[in-house]
Design a protein around this nucleic acid. Structure first.
Length: 512
RNA sequence: GGGUCGCUAGCUCAGCGGUAGAGCAUCCGGCUUUUAACCGGCUGGUCCUGAGUUCGAAUCUCAGGCGACCCA
């Protein structure tokens, strides 16, 4: 292992001794591998095209046959073969004191970045290649790459050393391209509809807007605790109070909770607020936006996700929480006349685990939904009309005071979006926050706290508004057919590895 | 939080009480149309960590670390 490193350091030094730089400053590229593959794919076997090109990439394979060699190099968008002939390269070398064919064989290792000049040639066997006349070392790699055939399969290593994963697993690269495309599409879609992107604070003296525990940090000179935001909601609503009718924020949210295939402590969401709208309008907006993204990223509204087929093209199902629970479990929460014990008895019969925290009919309804229904909602489904006690920021439902105008969107058994008709009545909002605060005082660390400044803003007056939050990571999981949220986050949170106190020795061949 | 499984060469894996193994990569030699190039030769190990059982442990037991999956 360290022998490989030593040998490669020697090679780097030998370049220096020949008067070349193992770590180049720049290299001027004329084309990408993708462009050349698209443009010259039509050439017949053995045919050449006299276009001078320069391109750069990482060496992925070396096939040396004495006085001729074939390397495969890869750049961001693809691969191409290099056709390397001793006679051609060494002809140039004599004239211009360049690196020789022998150097190419001896000094270049798999993993190195090199730059080449040459022309286009399709080999006799039909592989489009660069017929190389001269070459340069751009960056000497000191460590071996994973197996060229099996790649890197150890999931932990793929996360911890994402750079290796990206080099040897091409699918990993496409995941992050799709992620970037998805985020850019969301911004463009919203910007075109005149939504204004806002940047609200990440460091806050109270973390509000969601039921979650925050990360705590400390500001030294002010000597106060600060919390990382758990939502962008309360600040975006302040912007609506201030007169911005359509706002959004796409950014990182931090929640101090468990890690799973569906949860990373920091994740990306987009929250969208639109004045003069209610949750029905936000439902329509959600359906439009997500269909647009799916079509752009997957070229179809019907996609495969894991072993399921998900059809986004039909109008998405809209069903109330009570009705969907009735449909999937047979339990009719309207039949209990507010009798919690009766409802618990029915729920226990279908093996619902009921924690002491479940002390109202609404919480029980939500619990039954989460335990028995959620995972079965594969096709896009809007579940509407949530219990008021788990929705302290949502507007009361006009037809049922125990419910609010809220929906969550479920796809592939997972929550993807959450939205309400926002609660804009400052008196009602104060009562709800006070109730939350009392739960918090009683020890519920996830309950909301009173945000006086937010209440003050509502008293100044907020227009009727619809609000929506979409989990970007989970959306990208669908778009890229990824089973774990960690597959769509370049550097997911992992426990630190114990570092061995193996001291780094022998730097004798270190390039200075 | 509970359960199951995994951790052995740079990578992918075998070995499951008796000298630490293979393929690829590396290193040396050969080769002017290969593409998992090929042919010949050589190297490479804290078997995740620690303790125990044993004449003897990668292998069995216990504790710990990290990860994956399932359940809650």
């Amino acid at each position: 292992m360290s022998e490989i490193r030593e040998a490669r350091l020697l090679k780097a030094n030998s370049l220096i001794n020949k008067g070349f730089e193992p770590y180049a400053e720049t290299f001027k590229i004329s084309h990408s591998t993708r462009f050349l593959n698209e443009k010259f794919g039509y050439l017949d076997n053995g045919q050449e095209f006299d276009l001078n090109v320069s391109l750069a990439g990482r060496v992925l394979a070396k096939r040396v046959m004495g006085k001729i060699a074939f390397f495969t190099i890869t750049d961001q968008e693809g691969k191409i073969q290099l056709y390397l002939e001793k006679r051609i390269i060494d002809d140039y070398e004599i004239n211009a004191k360049l690196l020789s064919f022998e150097d190419l064989k001896e000094i270049v290792d798999i993993g190195d970045w090199i730059g080449v000049f040459g022309t286009i040639k399709k080999t006799n066997k039909g592989e489009l290649s660069i017929k190389v006349s001269k070459w340069e070392m751009l960056s000497k790699s000191l460590q071996p790459l994973p197996d060229k055939w099996h790649g890197l399969t150890d999931i932990e290593k793929r996360y911890r050393q994402r750079y290796l994963d990206l080099i040897v697993n091409p699918l990993s690269k496409t995941v992050f391209k799709t992620r970037a495309k998805c985020i850019s599409l969301i911004r463009r879609w919203l910007d075109e509809k005149n939504f204004l992107e806002i940047e609200t604070p990440i460091l806050q003296s109270e973390a509000g807007g969601a039921e979650a525990r925050p990360f705590i940090t400390h500001h030294n000179t002010l000597d106060i605790p600060l919390y990382l935001r758990i939502a962008t909601e309360l600040h975006l609503k302040r912007m609506v109070v201030g007169g911005f009718e359509k706002v959004y924020e796409l950014g990182r949210i931090f929640r101090n909770e468990g890690v799973s295939t569906k949860h990373n402590p920091e994740f990306t969401s987009v929250e969208i607020y639109q004045a003069f709208s209610n949750y029905i309008d936000m439902m329509n907006l959600t359906e439009d936006l997500i269909k647009n993204i799916v079509l752009s990223c997957c070229d179809s509204l019907v996609i495969n996700y894991q072993d399921k087929v998900i059809d986004f093209s039909k109008p998405w199902k809209r069903i109330s929480m009570k009705n969907v629970v009735k449909e999937y479990t047979g339990i009719d929460f309207d039949s209990f006349d507010g009798d919690l014990n009766k409802a618990k008895k029915f729920s226990e019969e279908i093996n619902i685990e009921i924690s002491p925290k479940i002390n109202t009919l609404g919480r029980l309804l939500n619990e039954v939904f989460e335990q028995k229904v959620e995972s079965q909602l594969i096709e896009p489904t809007f579940v509407t009309d949530y219990p008021i006690e788990i929705s302290p920021l949502a507007r009361r439902h006009p037809k049922n005071k125990e419910m609010v105008q809220r929906f969550e969107l479920f796809i592939a058994g997972r929550e993807l979006a959450n939205a309400f008709s926002e609660l804009i009545d400052p008196v009602d909002q104060r009562q709800r926050m006070q109730l939350q605060q009392s739960l918090r005082d009683a020890g519920d660390l996830e309950a909301h706290c009173i945000d006086e400044d937010f209440l003050q803003a509502l008293e100044i007056g907020m227009p009727p508004t619809g609000g929506l939050g979409i989990g970007i990571d989970r959306l990208v999981m669908l778009l890229t057919n990824s089973s774990s949220i960690r597959d769509v986050i370049p550097f997911p949170l992992l426990k630190p590895e114990l570092t061995s106190n193996k001291s780094e020795k022998s730097t004798s061949n270190e390039v200075k």
